[in-house]
Design a protein around this nucleic acid. Structure first.
Length: 722
DNA sequence: CTGGTCCCCGTTTTT
DNA sequence: CGGGGACCAG
């Protein structure tokens, strides 16, 4: 199997062929991390004669799982590829579906996503009389999530709670857990937490898995949280063959409970660990790497490494200073258009930002310039109201105890079942320990509390649901969905609710139906429960990505793991990148710096760094300073302004000083033959000829050191020296 | 119970 | 500036 590793460099080979036992590979951005993981799997299968079922690999995103699966399949063939390659959540789910009964879980449990959890929490807060103005449900949800990720139950949370807010949150946590149990539902964190409990409390189950999996592989190990690490350790508890790949410099999820300590202390957890480093980068130009190295060197919390490349130095990074965020958007468009006149496709260009809110302005500008663009993974398809409504119907069909879904759709479309009626129904059901549907069909029960007309309407709704449920076993998922849409006259409901958005929302409904058809075909007639599972764990970077001809826009977080020829990093300003909430504490600031590092290292060839002197926040202009991270990039790596102008862009206010760079991008410079100009790469020269105008302006320059060149000022800035 | 109005608040990042 | 929730008048 030498051909497997022949094309790898020495460090990669060492990692791929490492002997059994704990291995930690510190793999910098673009050093072939995925390649090492996939080749390692192939190598294990071939060399150690392992069966595919003896290998388990974890990723963080579905996208990464899919890529790993397909690349392993390329190496060993689809038939011999491991079955257990997936995200932590998906893998937990798989295990819980198989053995959850040992924890008292019913087989058809529902997965509650963030929104479902929040609704549950709000309802519980109402019941407990907790003031949601004082104790905000999203905050509590965050706390509960953190507790769960530290394997801390309601009792322990209450015991360790500090202050009023945490005490109240712990109280809500208790009630929330009871609610989930009553609804036969698990939230995202439970998928891992319960799996851990299952393995801890039932040794036969632990042995079943830990005995079977001979090798545990983990991608993006720096993003694991303590709970995920416990899961990994449990699965590796029999043999200790753990192969983790990560980059401490790309740890950007500590807010989600990820602990860089897992990475920094790996060797303590696993004595005898082989520590390997991948530092040769195959992605970016030398200058981009030098910039990234220089920036990240300011962090103290790191293992330390230095990326290098044997490839070209490439072009310097370009800082684009703008007066305000509107101008930043305009400059982006100009730069994008300039790039498109080179040999690049729109999909080679990617625009990054810190917060989703920044995209609106950029989108507006791109739209005005009729440049096709694609937002990757912001408002998730499955989070749209119309999609969630319909999914709630399906969830209610699949799980009669799903209270959140029942409450969501009982009066959508309007059925004259308002808060009062529904509240009384819920009370009756709780009192009798019944589901809403059972309470509704129990003879005479509704009449205790409800007027006859209301009781009739409630019954009508639940008999409709019951009919769907009865039909479900022999109905294909897409047919069931179409039937529901027709019977509740949902498209009519959309039109009546908001005529403007009805057609967009209608398209989303159609898209959901398409997804159901696609699922039906792909799964060979899979059941409703499977469909809902798949939907629950998918985030739709996976769903709608036919953006070949579009410029991509996404958050830096979303961009992790991807690479692009040209990257535009927008909003390089203090209080945005680094984010305002993170500048006051060192370890938070370091995470922001890692984020910036991730952004830089996405680029293969060119990087644009845009920033604005002011930006609207909540409708009001606020002044913005250039990001401190820009100052951490050595001046000689930055194009144009670097030498002569000493980067005026980095000072504030930028109004007059920013004009120079703004000029470059706004093409307000008039060139003429005989003019002396300065080029960022070729140095100084004399203009020989000027042709064309606007975007097509072509200037022929006789450079002092590089001879005669034709230059498009649009993308190769020329600074007049006269 | 519905539909309208008003006001508040906000924004970090995601499985 | 925009969305969502609270509140009030039919």
């Amino acid at each position: 199997m030498t051909n497997l590793v022949a094309a790898l460099n020495a460090a990669q080979q060492e990692a791929v062929t490492a002997s059994a036992g704990p291995v930690l590979v510190v793999a910098g951005a673009g050093t072939g991390k995925t390649r090492v993981l996939t080749t390692r799997i192939a190598w294990l299968l071939a060399e150690s004669k392992l069966h595919p079922a003896q290998i388990i690999a974890f990723t963080f995103t579905n996208r990464a799982a899919r890529e790993m699966r397909s690349r392993v399949a390329d190496l060993v063939g689809a038939e011999s590829s491991p079955y257990w390659i997936g995200t932590f959540h998906a893998t937990g789910l798989k295990i819980l579906r198989a053995h959850g009964d040992r924890l008292g879980l019913e087989r058809n449990f529902t997965i509650y996503d963030t929104d479902d959890s929040l609704r549950t929490l709000k309802r519980v807060a109402g019941e407990l009389g907790v003031d949601v103005k004082q104790i905000s449900p999203p905050l509590v949800r965050g706390l509960i999530s953190r507790w769960k990720n530290e394997d801390c139950g309601p009792a322990a949370a209450a015991a360790g709670a500090h202050g009023h807010i945490e005490e109240q949150a712990a109280r809500l946590y208790t009630a929330y857990e009871e609610q989930l149990r009553a609804c036969n539902a698990l939230d995202f964190d439970d998928l891992i937490l319960r799996t851990v409990h299952l393995l801890e409390q039932h040794d036969d189950v632990r042995l079943h898995y830990a005995g079977r999996f001979q090798h545990v592989l983990v991608d993006e190990f720096q993003d694991t949280n303590p709970l995920q690490f416990i899961l990994i350790k449990a699965l590796a508890s029999e043999h200790g063959n753990i192969f983790a790949v990560g980059d401490d410099d790309q740890s950007i999820y500590s807010w989600r409970g990820a602990s860089i300590a897992n990475m920094l202390n790996f060797e303590e957890f696993f004595p005898g660990t082989r520590l390997l480093r991948l530092e040769q980068n195959y992605r970016s130009t030398g200058l981009i790497l030098r910039a990234a190295n220089a920036v990240i060197a300011h962090n103290r919390q790191r293992k330390g490494k230095n990326l290098w490349t044997s490839g070209a130095e490439g072009e310097r990074l370009r800082i684009v200073s703008c007066v305000d965020a509107e101008e930043e958007a305009a400059s982006l468009v100009t730069a994008v258009q300039a790039e498109l006149t080179r040999d690049l496709k729109r999909s080679d260009l990617t625009v990054l930002y810190r917060t989703n809110a920044q995209s609106r302005l950029l989108e507006d500008a791109l739209r005005r310039a009729t440049i096709p663009y694609l937002i990757v993974g912001s408002v998730h398809f499955y989070e749209r109201r119309e999609v969630r409504d319909l999914l709630a119907y399906l969830k209610l069909v699949a799980n009669p105890r799903d209270l959140v879904s029942a409450l969501r759709v009982i009066n959508t479309p309007r059925r004259k079942l308002g808060d009062v009626t529904v509240g009384r129904l819920a009370e009756l059901a709780a009192r009798e320990d019944l589901t809403l549907g059972e309470a509704a069909t129990r003879p005479g029960l509704l009449e205790e509390q409800l007027p006859p007309a209301a009781a009739r309407r409630v019954r009508a709704f639940f008999s409709m649901v019951a009919a769907w449920r009865a039909a479900e076993p022999e109905t294909a998922v897409p047919s069931l969905l179409e039937r529901i849409i027709a019977e509740i006259d949902y498209l009519q409901h959309l039109a009546a609710t908001d005529a403007d958005s009805a057609s967009d929302r209608g398209e989303n409904v159609a898209e959901l139906v398409n997804a159901a058809h696609a699922f039906h075909e792909a799964s060979g007639g899979g059941r409703l429960a499977q469909f809902l599972e798949q939907v629950a764990l998918i985030s739709d970077q996976d769903a709608l990505t036919d953006g070949e001809g579009a410029v991509r826009l996404m958050t830096i977080h979303t961009a992790k793991g991807l690479e692009f020829p040209v990257v535009f990093i927008t909003g390089c300003e203090d209080d945005l990148l680094p984010h305002a909430s993170s500048v006051w504490e060192d370890h938070l600031l370091e995470e922001e710096r890692r984020l910036f590092y991730v952004a830089l290292t996405r680029a293969r060839r060119r990087v644009y760094l845009l920033h604005a002197g002011r930006r609207r926040r909540a409708g009001v202009y606020e002044p913005s300073l250039a990001s401190r991270f820009l100052r951490e990039i050595p001046a000689e790596l930055v194009a144009g302004a670097a030498e002569a102008a000493a980067r005026p862009a980095l000072r504030q206010p930028a109004a007059s000083e920013a004009a120079w760079e703004a000029d470059v991008y706004h093409d307000e410079i008039h060139y003429y033959a005989g003019q002396t100009v300065l080029h960022s790469t070729f140095g100084s020269g004399v203009v020989a000829r000027v042709e064309g105008s606007g975007d097509n302006l072509l200037v022929t320059v006789e450079f002092n050191d590089h001879g005669r060149k034709q230059v498009l000022p649009k993308y190769a800035p020329l600074r007049p020296l006269d």
